[in-house]
Design a protein around this nucleic acid. Structure first.
Lengths: 228, 228
DNA sequence: GAGTGGTCTAGACCACGTT
DNA sequence: ACGTGGTCTAGACCACTCC
């Protein structure tokens, strides 16, 4: 015998899909299921917890466990270091620093960082190359407080890679959208005028404080893959 | 006392961020940690399993647990039913069916569905409206085997919503990209010629077999938000 | 108040993969 | 071969929340 929690999960999933338990309906308690299926309640708990995390069940103490009425498709994807993403496609990687200077950020960025007037941020612009062709154009604002003395040489290591391996992050936001290439971006990325570019805007935080905000413009043809 | 697994996770996270355990370094075994921190090994296991799922640790039997060398940013987002997504923004929702017919799919789709020649799929095209303005143009191929008799009326309920609440899914793929609007899409979405559109291509499977493949073109201005 | 899920414990066995 | 993580068990207590 020896039923594992994955077996229990499979059985519960089967009953949901067979509409043995209808959407919105209450399913038996963990204890009842553990008796029926012949395993410990802990094992049932593990299985139901997993299905709830996947969005198929809704659980509340005392109220019990229900089959989700509107099963949410919850997708996940990994955002690797840009260098590894490119090398993972079998291409060679290079980073070209376009600009590095201290500057007053625009109002929107300043309010995000809650930075004081007169305390400039670090402005970084650069280009990630795959097989020596432009792949991603990056515009970044960075809180200089996270930099050590002496500061890293961003001509040798991209801000992306340096940050990932030197500054512990605790969370952040990402927004994906599409944008037509501006004349300057056409120039930098070598794409057609007005080409549709995949845009990723990311704010990374550590301990509740924004560390860096970055705008990543991907050359035409970029695809972001995720699993359901 | 009564340390919970979240306390253990917090302590381990603290040591990683304080570089008490360097990236790539081996950390103590579950048993050693449980003794040091004064809890059961199960509790340590739960904490380390969670950190591994978040991409901060790498675990292998016998080899032990290491601090990830290149912490992967693992992002998650929910893909709700289109109607709920639009209504959630406080806008009114409507769906307009443009086309519904049986047809032989193009080769790429046919091979995906492993469908036999002479067994046509259902071709659906429609427009999701937010506040009576075009929001998402949808082109879909659907395996008619999943439809009941009589078939649902897709003029009243969008294929998206009907599928989510009637056909259990077990997995799938999503690919996001950016595309310039074609003349036909300009016409349907009422956008500028060549506008950059956010494109979502999704294949949904049940029990390892593709059920539906859909191409969703979002009107300009669409943003997909995710959490790190 | 009482029912249900959330978690902890201590011990045990097993699977895997490095050595 | 053997060390490490993966999991199961049985029992217990607690937290939340519905009634």
């Amino acid at each position: 015998m020896a039923l594992g929690w994955e077996d229990i999960r499979a059985e519960v999933l089967r009953r949901i899909e067979a509409r043995h338990w209808a959407p919105g309906a209450l399913i038996p308690t963990e204890e009842a299921l553990s008796e029926e299926l012949g395993c410990a309640r802990t094992t049932v708990n593990r299985a139901l917890r997993d299905l709830a995390a996947a969005g198929l069940l809704e659980r509340r103490r005392k109220a019990g466990t229900r089959v989700a009425l509107h099963p949410v498709r919850r997708a996940r994807f990994d955002i690797p270091v840009t260098r590894l993403e490119i090398e993972g496609r079998g291409q060679s990687y290079a980073f070209h620093l376009i600009e590095e200077r201290r500057a007053e950020p625009p109002a929107a960025v300043a309010s995000l960082f809650r930075s004081l007037p007169g305390a400039p941020l670090l402005r970084l612009r650069g280009l990630h190359l795959a097989d020596n062709r432009p792949a991603i154009y990056e515009e970044r604002w960075l809180d200089p407080a996270v930099l050590p003395e002496p500061a890293p040489d961003f001509r040798r290591i991209s801000p992306n890679e340096w940050l990932v391996s030197h500054v512990p992050w605790t969370g952040g936001d990402i927004v994906f959208s599409a944008a037509n290439a501006s004349p300057e971006e056409v120039d930098i990325l070598g794409c057609a005028p007005g080409a549709a570019l995949f845009l990723c805007e990311r704010v990374t935080e550590a301990e509740g404080r924004p560390i860096t905000s970055v705008r990543l413009l991907h050359a035409p043809g970029y695809r972001l893959r995720a699993d359901l």
